[in-house]
């Protein structure tokens, strides 16, 4: 416990940033045809809020995350972090992708150190890498290569690689999508406690309604492509949440209805 407390201290508690997505539209050129993916999306996320984005497969949620990360500029509209326009990637907004995409040629420790190394501050900040690995409970695997890790462990390393940068906004692109259901449930609980302790703003894309309701303050439901906001639902339940909560079950039925799945429920 002491080690964990120290680990948290080393990853200084960075307060989350606010995120404003203002009238954003985006499209892709595929074989000379314009394929619209986002249609006039506006979302305001308060500092420290946990927002889940739900929607049918391929509707453009992940594209929205790429825009938030600054990996691409939007075709129309603007995105701001704490009022500052987003023009490119920045370690204050870190993405955890569906695949862990660890660098196979680096040990766990060096994978986690990637961000600090890229920013040229690794030499003075090595303790932060140790702390982040400690935080996700993989200290014994610091010298393992990625191919020696299980899927859940690899995704934990990816999480540590993001958290070591003290992100103000953590962008989660279906980070638990490929894990088995048991690992998934464990990591959902871990994610909640990490978020509660660190105070970052979280933006999560998921297909799993239950996951969204278990984790998020707000669930935003998107329509089919091009994605439009269909509903913005506040989940006003204290943490840690109970999966059998009657109110959550009610919300779940409502959201599945919005996604056009009411016939089955």
């Amino acid at each position: 416990m002491v080690a964990l407390a120290l680990a948290e201290q080393a990853l200084s508690i960075a307060a989350g940033a606010s995120l404003e997505i203002d009238g954003v539209s985006h499209a892709f050129d595929i074989d000379g045809k314009v394929l619209p993916v986002l249609d006039d999306v506006s979302i305001k996320v308060a500092p420290g809020e946990f927002v889940a984005l739900l929607g049918p497969s391929g509707c453009g949620k992940s594209t929205l995350l790429r825009l938030v990360a600054g990996l691409e500029p939007p075709r129309a509209g603007s995105l701001r972090e704490d009022g500052v326009p987003i023009t490119g990637p920045n370690p204050s907004r870190v993405v955890v992708f569906q695949d862990p995409t660890l660098f196979p040629w680096r040990h766990v420790w060096n994978n986690v150190a990637l961000g600090l190394e890229a920013q040229g501050i690794l030499k003075s900040q090595r303790h932060r890498v140790d702390a982040a690995i400690e935080l996700v409970g993989l200290s014994t695997f610091r010298n393992a290569f990625p191919h020696q890790l299980s899927g859940g462990m690899a995704q934990r390393v990816a999480l540590a690689r993001a958290l070591v940068n003290d992100p103000k906004i953590l962008v989660l692109d279906e980070p638990l999508g490929k894990l088995d259901s048991l690992t998934r449930i464990t990591m959902q609980a871990e994610l909640v406690s990490l978020w509660q302790r660190s105070g970052f703003t979280a933006l999560l894309v998921t297909h799993d309604v239950e996951e969204a309701l278990f984790l998020a303050n707000r669930v935003i439901v998107f329509s089919d492509r091009p994605a439009k906001i269909k509903a913005d639902i506040v989940v006003d339940r204290p943490y840690p949440r109970h999966r059998g909560d009657a109110h959550l079950a009610e919300l779940r039925r409502h959201i599945l209805g919005l996604l056009g799945l009411d016939a089955t429920w």
Partner: peptide, 12 residues
């Protein structure tokens, strides 16, 4: 995906 990861972590 490797480049995306590195870029979001602040790689030049």
């Amino acid at each position: 995906a490797y480049y995306d990861v590195a870029r979001t972590l602040g790689a030049k």
